[in-house]
């Protein structure tokens, strides 16, 4: 556990020293300032557009950080040969993968938290916040989504090049987010293989609560939160298991 945590926490330093995250922070702040000052037909008190676009940018920027970062973790380590001194230490291959995943999650979580906090400040300053529980649920679900995406990206990166991994990860994410709910009827036409394919795909659409925040819907009941969290955790565990299994077979 200690080894895993050490690998993970040192990864955090990369994102803050590389400074890409600050560029997104600046972009987000500029965007939010621009949005706040937009005048639509001299109508005051508009807030939903700000929530929609602001929150959309928060999610998008988090994706821009999470996917490329997760995609390069394993490949770059092998390419730069930094993996040799690491695996020469008493580190199992599973600890390596777990450490990389935890690091990716910490980075994704830190970036998203920073962006979300900025958005939250702007939102409450506009004077039309939704319930705090809903903000918290949205935050938690987004973190689960980013964790799932990180695990998926790491799994893909063990089998593919960096650019293929990034492209495929983005494709899967956007297709499932937009069309995941509609796939059921399509896949069910193919009987058992269709059912398997439907359930194997990562259902990112479960974790997007932006509409709830934008339109002030009520918070989710506890059973929904529990089920979604359980789905994410099980899926992540399976992905990490197969990632470690594939990684264990690799020669360096």
């Amino acid at each position: 556990m200690k080894t895993t945590v050490l690998i993970a926490t040192n990864l955090m330093k990369e994102i803050f020293r590389k400074k890409d995250i600050y560029v997104f922070v600046v972009l987000l702040v500029i965007l939010l300032i621009y949005l706040i000052n937009m005048n639509f037909f001299d109508i005051g008190g508009l807030s939903r557009y700000l929530k929609e676009i602001g929150l959309g940018m928060v999610y998008l920027f988090s994706l821009f950080i999470t996917v490329p970062f997760s995609a390069k973790l394993v490949g770059e380590e092998i390419q730069n040969k930094t993996i040799y001194p690491l695996l020469a230490k008493p580190v199992t291959r599973f600890q390596f993968i777990a450490g990389k995943f935890l690091g990716a999650l910490l980075v994704a979580g830190a970036s998203f938290s920073l962006f979300y906090f900025i958005f939250y400040l702007v939102d409450i300053s506009k004077g039309t916040p939704v319930g705090f529980i809903l903000y918290l649920e949205t935050y938690a679900f987004a973190i689960l989504m980013l964790a799932l995406l990180s695990a998926l990206t790491i799994f893909l990166s063990i089998h593919m090049t960096f650019s293929t991994t990034v492209t495929l990860a983005y494709l899967i994410y956007f297709i499932m987010s937009w069309f995941g709910a509609s796939f059921r009827d399509y896949f069910y036409n193919f009987s058992i293989p269709g059912y398997i394919a439907y359930y194997l795909l990562p259902h990112f659409e479960f974790f997007d609560l932006r509409d709830r925040v934008v339109h002030s819907w009520p918070a989710l009941p506890a059973w929904v939160v529990g089920c979604a969290a359980a789905y994410a955790l099980i899926y992540i565990s399976v992905l990490l298991y197969f990632s470690a299994f594939a990684f264990k077979k690799k020669w360096f």
């Binding site: 109508i43 508009l46 939903r48 557009y49 709910a181 659409e205 974790f207 997007d208 509409d211």
Partner: peptide
């Protein structure tokens, strides 16, 4: 699960709230 997360009854916005559609 998807329906519980993403579906809500449709409510037409009140006259006061309907200003929210104008930016679009």
């Amino acid at each position: 699960l998807y329906r519980a997360v993403r579906h809500q009854p449709a409510r037409h916005l009140s006259d006061e709230q309907s200003k929210e559609i104008t930016p679009w």
